[in-house]
Protein backbone atom coordinates (compact mmCIF):
# COMPACT_ATOMS: atom_id res chain seq x y z
CA UNK A 1 0.00 0.00 0.00
CA UNK A 2 1.42 3.38 -0.96
CA UNK A 3 1.53 6.28 1.50
CA UNK A 4 -1.12 8.02 -0.59
CA UNK A 5 -3.49 5.05 -0.50
CA UNK A 6 -2.90 4.80 3.20
CA UNK A 7 -3.87 8.45 3.69
CA UNK A 8 -7.10 7.93 1.80
CA UNK A 9 -7.97 4.90 3.87
CA UNK A 10 -7.23 6.73 7.11
CA UNK A 11 -9.44 9.61 5.99
CA UNK A 12 -12.27 7.24 5.09
CA UNK A 13 -11.92 5.46 8.44
CA UNK A 14 -11.93 8.79 10.26
CA UNK A 15 -15.23 9.57 8.55
CA UNK A 16 -16.81 6.44 9.93
CA UNK A 17 -15.98 3.92 7.23
CA UNK A 18 -15.36 0.85 9.38
CA UNK A 19 -14.49 -1.17 6.31
CA UNK A 20 -11.57 1.15 5.71
CA UNK A 21 -10.42 0.79 9.29
CA UNK A 22 -10.67 -2.98 9.01
CA UNK A 23 -8.34 -2.78 6.03
CA UNK A 24 -5.83 -0.83 8.09
CA UNK A 25 -5.98 -3.51 10.77
CA UNK A 26 -5.53 -6.29 8.22
CA UNK A 27 -2.55 -4.56 6.66
CA UNK A 28 -0.81 -3.88 9.96
CA UNK A 29 -1.84 -6.67 12.29
CA UNK A 30 1.20 -8.83 11.67
CA UNK A 31 3.59 -5.99 12.28
CA UNK A 32 1.78 -4.84 15.41
CA UNK A 33 1.36 -8.33 16.83
CA UNK A 34 5.00 -9.26 16.28
CA UNK A 35 6.16 -6.09 17.94
CA UNK A 36 3.84 -6.69 20.90
CA UNK A 37 5.09 -10.26 21.10
CA UNK A 38 8.69 -9.12 21.28
CA UNK A 39 7.90 -6.54 23.90
CA UNK A 40 5.64 -8.57 26.18
CA UNK A 41 7.19 -11.96 25.56
CA UNK A 42 3.91 -13.89 25.57
CA UNK A 43 1.09 -14.46 23.12
CA UNK A 44 -1.77 -13.57 25.43
CA UNK A 45 -0.45 -10.14 26.37
CA UNK A 46 0.63 -9.54 22.79
CA UNK A 47 -2.94 -10.11 21.60
CA UNK A 48 -4.38 -7.78 24.25
CA UNK A 49 -1.81 -5.08 23.57
CA UNK A 50 -2.35 -5.32 19.81
CA UNK A 51 -6.09 -4.91 20.18
CA UNK A 52 -5.64 -2.01 22.58
CA UNK A 53 -3.24 -0.32 20.16
CA UNK A 54 -5.66 -0.61 17.25
CA UNK A 55 -8.57 0.70 19.31
CA UNK A 56 -6.45 3.62 20.44
CA UNK A 57 -5.64 4.27 16.78
CA UNK A 58 -9.35 4.13 15.93
CA UNK A 59 -10.16 6.69 18.61
CA UNK A 60 -7.44 9.00 17.35
CA UNK A 61 -7.87 8.65 13.60
CA UNK A 62 -8.82 12.27 13.21
CA UNK A 63 -5.66 13.43 14.90
CA UNK A 64 -3.42 11.37 12.61
CA UNK A 65 -1.79 13.98 10.41
CA UNK A 66 0.03 11.70 8.06
CA UNK A 67 3.49 13.05 8.83
CA UNK A 68 4.63 9.45 9.13
CA UNK A 69 3.35 6.12 7.88
CA UNK A 70 0.58 4.41 9.80
CA UNK A 71 2.99 1.62 10.75
CA UNK A 72 5.24 4.10 12.56
CA UNK A 73 2.29 5.59 14.37
CA UNK A 74 1.10 2.11 15.32
CA UNK A 75 4.58 1.23 16.55
CA UNK A 76 4.32 3.97 19.15
CA UNK A 77 0.76 3.04 20.09
CA UNK A 78 1.74 -0.61 20.44
CA UNK A 79 4.64 0.20 22.68
CA UNK A 80 2.39 2.35 24.88
CA UNK A 81 -0.25 -0.37 24.99
CA UNK A 82 2.37 -2.92 26.09
CA UNK A 83 3.64 -0.55 28.74
CA UNK A 84 0.11 0.06 30.08
CA UNK A 85 -0.62 -3.63 30.11
CA UNK A 86 2.56 -4.48 31.97
CA UNK A 87 2.04 -1.76 34.54
CA UNK A 88 -1.51 -2.96 35.07
CA UNK A 89 -0.57 -6.62 35.43
CA UNK A 90 2.27 -5.71 37.80
CA UNK A 91 -0.17 -3.84 39.98
CA UNK A 92 -2.56 -6.81 39.90
CA UNK A 93 0.26 -9.12 40.87
CA UNK A 94 1.06 -7.22 44.04
CA UNK A 95 -2.45 -7.75 45.32
CA UNK A 96 -2.35 -11.45 44.52
CA UNK A 97 1.05 -12.01 46.09
CA UNK A 98 1.22 -14.78 48.71
CA UNK A 99 2.03 -13.69 52.23
CA UNK A 100 4.41 -16.55 52.92
CA UNK A 101 7.67 -15.04 51.81
CA UNK A 102 9.53 -18.28 51.39
CA UNK A 103 6.68 -19.87 49.45
CA UNK A 104 6.37 -16.76 47.37
CA UNK A 105 10.01 -16.87 46.47
CA UNK A 106 9.74 -20.40 45.26
CA UNK A 107 6.33 -20.36 43.62
CA UNK A 108 5.74 -16.95 42.12
CA UNK A 109 5.71 -17.50 38.40
CA UNK A 110 7.91 -15.49 36.10
CA UNK A 111 6.25 -12.09 36.13
CA UNK A 112 7.41 -11.35 32.58
CA UNK A 113 9.09 -8.11 31.67
CA UNK A 114 8.75 -5.10 33.93
CA UNK A 115 8.48 -1.53 32.68
CA UNK A 116 12.27 -1.10 32.79
CA UNK A 117 12.83 -4.21 30.79
CA UNK A 118 10.22 -3.09 28.30
CA UNK A 119 12.04 0.19 27.77
CA UNK A 120 15.22 -1.80 27.32
CA UNK A 121 13.60 -4.05 24.73
CA UNK A 122 12.24 -1.11 22.84
CA UNK A 123 15.69 0.50 22.83
CA UNK A 124 17.12 -2.71 21.49
CA UNK A 125 14.60 -2.84 18.70
CA UNK A 126 15.29 0.77 17.84
CA UNK A 127 19.04 0.19 17.89
CA UNK A 128 18.61 -2.65 15.44
CA UNK A 129 16.55 -0.46 13.14
CA UNK A 130 19.17 2.27 13.31
CA UNK A 131 21.98 -0.20 12.69
CA UNK A 132 20.05 -1.65 9.77
CA UNK A 133 19.62 1.78 8.22
CA UNK A 134 23.34 2.36 8.46
CA UNK A 135 24.08 -0.68 6.29
CA UNK A 136 24.84 -0.43 2.57
CA UNK A 137 21.62 -0.77 0.59
CA UNK A 138 22.54 -4.16 -0.87
CA UNK A 139 23.20 -5.60 2.58
CA UNK A 140 20.07 -4.03 3.98
CA UNK A 141 17.85 -5.35 1.21
CA UNK A 142 19.06 -8.91 1.38
CA UNK A 143 18.74 -8.90 5.15
CA UNK A 144 15.21 -7.56 5.02
CA UNK A 145 14.31 -10.28 2.53
CA UNK A 146 15.64 -12.95 4.81
CA UNK A 147 14.73 -11.71 8.28
CA UNK A 148 11.72 -9.54 7.78
CA UNK A 149 10.07 -11.16 4.79
CA UNK A 150 11.24 -14.61 5.85
CA UNK A 151 12.22 -15.52 2.27
CA UNK A 152 14.20 -18.68 1.70
CA UNK A 153 17.66 -18.71 0.08
CA UNK A 154 16.03 -20.06 -3.08
CA UNK A 155 13.44 -17.29 -3.17
CA UNK A 156 16.04 -14.60 -2.62
CA UNK A 157 18.26 -16.15 -5.25
CA UNK A 158 15.41 -16.00 -7.78
CA UNK A 159 14.47 -12.45 -6.77
CA UNK A 160 18.02 -11.10 -7.04
CA UNK A 161 19.26 -13.36 -9.83
CA UNK A 162 22.11 -14.74 -7.72
CA UNK A 163 23.43 -18.23 -7.03
CA UNK A 164 22.17 -19.68 -3.77
CA UNK A 165 25.71 -19.96 -2.47
CA UNK A 166 26.24 -16.26 -3.12
CA UNK A 167 22.98 -15.43 -1.38
CA UNK A 168 24.09 -17.45 1.62
CA UNK A 169 27.45 -15.71 1.93
CA UNK A 170 25.98 -12.26 1.32
CA UNK A 171 23.43 -12.83 4.07
CA UNK A 172 26.23 -13.92 6.40
CA UNK A 173 28.21 -10.76 5.58
CA UNK A 174 25.16 -8.53 6.02
CA UNK A 175 24.41 -10.12 9.38
CA UNK A 176 28.00 -9.68 10.41
CA UNK A 177 28.01 -6.01 9.43
CA UNK A 178 24.80 -5.45 11.35
CA UNK A 179 26.19 -7.30 14.37
CA UNK A 180 29.38 -5.22 14.27
CA UNK A 181 27.31 -2.03 14.30
CA UNK A 182 25.30 -3.33 17.23
CA UNK A 183 28.28 -4.62 19.14
CA UNK A 184 29.96 -1.24 18.80
CA UNK A 185 26.92 0.46 20.28
CA UNK A 186 26.90 -2.16 23.05
CA UNK A 187 23.31 -3.12 22.34
CA UNK A 188 23.18 -6.86 22.80
CA UNK A 189 26.21 -7.15 25.01
CA UNK A 190 24.37 -4.94 27.43
CA UNK A 191 21.29 -7.11 27.22
CA UNK A 192 23.19 -10.27 28.05
CA UNK A 193 24.48 -8.67 31.24
CA UNK A 194 21.18 -7.19 32.20
CA UNK A 195 19.39 -10.49 31.64
CA UNK A 196 21.77 -12.11 34.05
CA UNK A 197 21.02 -9.45 36.58
CA UNK A 198 17.31 -9.75 36.18
CA UNK A 199 17.41 -13.53 36.49
CA UNK A 200 19.24 -13.05 39.76
CA UNK A 201 16.48 -10.71 40.88
CA UNK A 202 13.72 -13.08 39.86
CA UNK A 203 11.83 -14.51 42.82
CA UNK A 204 13.60 -12.28 45.32
CA UNK A 205 12.12 -8.94 44.38
CA UNK A 206 8.49 -8.64 43.45
CA UNK A 207 7.72 -4.94 43.41
Amino acid sequence: MTAEEEQKIVRAAAHGDNGAFERLVRENQKHVYNLALKLTGNAEDALDASQDAFLKAYQNLKSFRGDSRVSVWLYRLTYNACMDLIKKSRRGQVTRMPTDEEGAELETPDPGPGPDELIERREELESVRRALNELDPDKRIILMMREYRNMSYAEISRALGLEEGTVKSRIARARAALAENLKNSGTFTFRAQSNNQSSKRKGGTRE
Binding site: K30, N34, E124, V128, L132, L178, L182, F188, R191
Partner: peptide, 8 residues
Protein backbone atom coordinates in the same frame (compact mmCIF):
# COMPACT_ATOMS: atom_id res chain seq x y z
CA UNK B 1 19.47 -10.67 18.76
CA UNK B 2 19.31 -8.67 15.53
CA UNK B 3 17.63 -11.54 13.76
CA UNK B 4 15.11 -11.87 16.54
CA UNK B 5 14.45 -8.14 16.49
CA UNK B 6 13.93 -7.98 12.75
CA UNK B 7 11.87 -11.05 12.13
CA UNK B 8 8.11 -10.92 12.01
Amino acid sequence: GAREALSE
